[in-house]
Amino acid sequence: MNTSDDIFLLIKQYASGELDEQGRKDLEAALAERPDLRDELAFTQSLRRTTEKAERQRLLALIESVDSSGGNTDRPTEAAPLAKPRQYGWALLAAAALLVALALLWWFYRQSAEPLEKFQHTAYVEPSLGSAATRGGTERGLLLDAFREYEAGNYTGSLALLDSMPPGDSLYLYALFLRGHDHFRAGRYGQAIGAFDQLEQQFGTNPAYLAPNRDNAGWTRLLALLQLYEKEKSDSKKQALLQAIQAFLEGADNSDIYFKKATELQSSLKGD
């Protein structure tokens, strides 16, 4: 294990506690003398933490995508097919007319009910504070308290705490993000949209890795618009929603679950 090619293997074994007593002592002695080995150790430790974070996020996204694409076989199955009509005279005509009527009813039902059924209850994705939970920031404690209130279902309490977050704080974007989620979960969809719009305007003020998940925010905003559309069922609301979905798809990461969900919602609304 002397070549530079093998050093990273040795250090990884040390970082994961796989080295025996003697190997550990030898390496610690080398670490004390060689800064390059210390750098490699720091890199390895960081890699262990970040591969864990990335892998857990990937798994969760995969599981959620299976869930939303109907992989869950415990869900209610479709209704049994209609019985065959009798084969003669007026009864046949009546049955055919009935079938046409049922098909039309089903079509109208599908047009109107599918977005709600499919997206209202299952498509919401809980927010995550990500790096903000551990990052510095004057009001980190305040944000964590507000998030705890959100998790406990006390959205009003969470919003009250977020009200005292100063706009200059480095975690302010997260406060806006959580505010949008609080309003959404409390059923105040207009205010949720307002919070996410405000957040969207400020995204450029922080590097992407220091900001909340933009696609999660955009997707939750779409769900809020969907709720407003479901209340009114007007053409104008539908058009506004379709335009918002299109705008979201143009800016979203096309490999994440939100892009996929938005595409499905767009298809459902268009009746594809």
Binding site: A42, R48, T51, K53
Partner: peptide, 27 residues
């Protein structure tokens, strides 16, 4: 934490094969 953030971002830019083997080995 800052280093982790940058590494996490970089990890997400790798291709699947590279990310898979690093995940298998390090995580």
């Amino acid at each position: 934490r800052e280093r982790d953030e940058r590494l996490h971002e970089a990890l997400l830019q790798l291709n699947d094969t590279d990310r898979d083997i690093l995940t298998a080995f390090y995580f």
